[in-house]
Simulated scan of single mutants.
Amino acid sequence: MLYLEDLKIGDQFKSREYEMTLEEIKDFANKYDPQVFHTDEEKAKDHPIFQGIAASGWHTSAVTMRLWTECFPVAGGLIGSESSLRWPRPARVGDRIHVEVEIVAITPSKTKNDRAIVTYVTQARNQVGDVLLLSTTKIVVFKREFASGQG
């Protein structure tokens, strides 16, 4: 597990790959984002932007979250305080997504000396390097002493 003392600006983390399947894309979309370009292969072919079935951006975000938790194991969890994100390209059936994380800022709390806000940039990429998701996220990260109940 990673604590505040373990992190510095410029640190990078890379996840394993996760493959997007047609069944999973449709299942996610039917539950959370039921639009035809996510759920119907035939109708998606005629879509002016997607021209074929594409994963919901929220599905790509959920996969990114899963991969974050595996490659960036922050003690106490990834407690988000803010995030901005973009989906430059859709994830497609068969895409093998991995995430690349880089810490870009560490801002100590002004009122609590046991924590800081860590800002990191994430790129979720497919197997050929296309960026499918780009985000800047701020999380609360605790010092090691927090875990032992001191401070």
Score class of each variant (00 low, 15 high):
D46A: 04
L133V: 03
T21N: 08
S84Q: 15
L7K: 09
Q12K: 15
I49M: 09
K138L: 07
P48G: 12
A91Q: 02
K43F: 05
Q150L: 06
F13Y: 05
A44H: 10
E5R: 00
G80T: 04
Q12W: 02
P48Y: 10
A147H: 13
K110L: 14
Q150W: 03
K143R: 14
E42C: 15
I53R: 14
F72H: 01
A62R: 05
L7N: 08
R86D: 06
F28L: 01
F142M: 09
V63F: 01
A105E: 11
F142L: 09
K31I: 13
A54R: 03
V128H: 14
T69H: 13
R125S: 06
T122N: 09
M1H: 07
S56W: 09
I139N: 15
E70N: 07
V141G: 05
N126P: 09
L85R: 04
I49L: 11
W68F: 10
R92T: 04
M20F: 02
D6R: 01
L22W: 15
D27A: 15
F146Q: 15
F142E: 10
D130R: 08
T111N: 13
F37G: 09
Q123V: 01
T60N: 03
D95P: 02
I9L: 03
V104H: 09
I117W: 11
G10L: 03
P90Y: 00
R96W: 08
R86A: 05
G57L: 00
I139G: 15
I139T: 15
D114P: 06
Q51W: 05
E24N: 11
R86P: 05
L132R: 11
K26H: 08
V63N: 04
T107R: 12
T111Y: 15
I79A: 15
E102M: 02
M1I: 02
E82D: 15
Q127A: 09
E17R: 12
A116T: 05
T21E: 07
T21C: 10
E5H: 01
E5T: 04
K110C: 12
T60S: 08
G151F: 09
V140T: 10
G57N: 02
V141R: 06
I79Y: 07
E100C: 07
D114K: 06
L85D: 04
I106F: 01
D46V: 07
F146L: 11
E24C: 08
N113Q: 11
G76K: 07
L132M: 11
T39W: 05
